[in-house]
C-alpha cells in the first residue's frame, strides 16, 4: 500500500512531540478521499508511541468517516493505555464531532455538553 510507504517517511521526518506523544496534524480537507493517507499517518503514530497528539486546528471540512478513524484510534489507544491529546481543533471540527455525539469519546477539550 502506498499509504504505508508514506507513513515510513513521516516516521523519519516527524520527531515525537516534546511531551512524548506522536503528533499528527489533520489536513484542511479531511474527507473520505484524503483518508488513506491520514489513516497511514495515524497508524504510524500508534506504532511510534504510547500517546498520540492530534492537531485539528486546520481542519475546514470533515466527514463521518474521518471522525470514525479518530474514534477507532482512540479505542485502540485506550486498549493499550495510551492517551489522546489535543493540540487544537477548528470550529468546523468541533461542530462535526459534537453533532455526531463523538466529542466526549474523542475527549475533545472544547467539547461542550455533548
Amino acid at each position: 500500500m502506498a499509504g504505508k510507504r508514506a507513513a515510513k517517511q513521516y516516521q523519519d521526518e516527524r520527531p515525537a512531540a516534546p511531551d512524548g506523544a506522536a503528533a499528527v496534524v489533520l489536513p484542511a480537507d479531511c474527507r473520505l478521499a484524503a483518508q488513506a493517507a491520514l489513516q497511514a499517518e495515524l497508524v504510524a503514530a500508534l506504532e511510534r508511541g504510547a500517546d498520540v497528539a492530534l492537531d485539528a486546528s486546520a481542519v475546514e471540512r470533515v466527514d463521518t468517516a474521518a471522525l470514525q478513524l479518530l474514534v477507532l484510534l482512540r479505542r485502540e489507544l485506550g486498549s493499550r493505555d495510551g492517551a489522546l491529546a489535543w493540540r487544537g481543533a477548528s470550529a468546523a471540527f468541533n461542530e462535526a464531532a459534537g453533532l455526531l455525539g463523538l466529542a466526549r469519546i474523542l475527549e475533545l477539550p472544547a467539547a461542550g455538553p455533548a
Binding site: 488513506a36 489513516q39 463521518t64 485502540e76
Partner: peptide, 14 residues
C-alpha cells in the same frame, strides 16, 4: 476492526 490499521475508511461501523 480492533486495529485501526485494518479499517477500510470507506466502511461505516457506527
Amino acid at each position: 476492526p480492533a486495529r485501526l490499521a485494518e479499517l477500510d475508511p470507506s466502511q461505516c461501523h457506527l
